[in-house]
């Protein structure tokens, strides 16, 4: 299940949704020059105390009542460590949380990025009230996506219609592909 980077990101996005965020920002910096993929997930949810943030990536830390272990953050941390990267949680109660992970791009253990369009579509669908910003930044190009702009264009029509959700997924993946192509030219 946990093969690609996107699946790990989805877990972190679900944490932000659960934390009551109204805006979630996903930023992926994919740099060949620096040989690093940096993933930032920024939310304005309820945040964590310093004490909680310090131990949140421990698999035995969870505020869930349905199972005893929390895996989202600990798996992401494990991925970063396996792939010669870094992992960090910055959080403030009542303000929000930022999770930052890096992996080495050209590392044999670093998995594929995976289907970012799909996980964003799925997150958007799970709660139509949350806004998302997504940036995909390479050495020479950048793709930006913002649900606020989409909502404005739709002017009263729901983001959650299947044809719109599918468009969002395809539009995001197309944006990533284009940014990558220009990077290799």
């Amino acid at each position: 299940m946990m093969e690609d980077i996107a699946m790990h990101i989805l877990e972190i996005l679900m944490n932000s949704i659960k934390a009551g965020a109204s805006l979630i920002i996903l930023r992926i910096t994919d740099s060949l020059d620096q040989d690093v993929i940096k993933i930032e997930i920024i939310d304005d949810g309820k945040g964590m105390s310093e004490e909680m943030a310090a131990k949140a990536a421990d698999p035995f830390t969870t505020s869930r009542t349905t199972r005893k272990i929390g895996l989202g953050l600990s798996f992401m941390k494990g991925l970063a460590e396996t792939c010669n990267g870094t992992f960090k949680i910055d959080s403030q109660l009542g303000v929000g949380t930022t999770v930052t992970a890096t992996v080495q791009k050209l590392n044999i253990d670093t998995p594929e990025l995976g289907d970012i369009g799909e996980i964003l579509m799925e997150s958007i669908q799970s709660n139509g009230d949350i806004d998302y910003e997504f940036d995909y930044i390479t050495d020479v190009n950048a793709f930006h996506f913002d649900t606020k702009m989409i909502r404005e264009t739709l002017d009263g029509v729901s983001l959650l219609l299947p044809e719109i959700l599918l468009w969002i997924k395809d539009y995001i993946n197309q944006g990533i592909e284009q940014a990558k192509e220009e990077d290799t030219q």
Binding site: M149, T153, L154, V157, L161, I164, D170
Partner: peptide, 10 residues
């Protein structure tokens, strides 16, 4: 896909 599509879908 372009942002123009959204107007048509709307």
């Amino acid at each position: 896909k372009s942002l123009e599509d959204l107007k048509k879908m709307r």
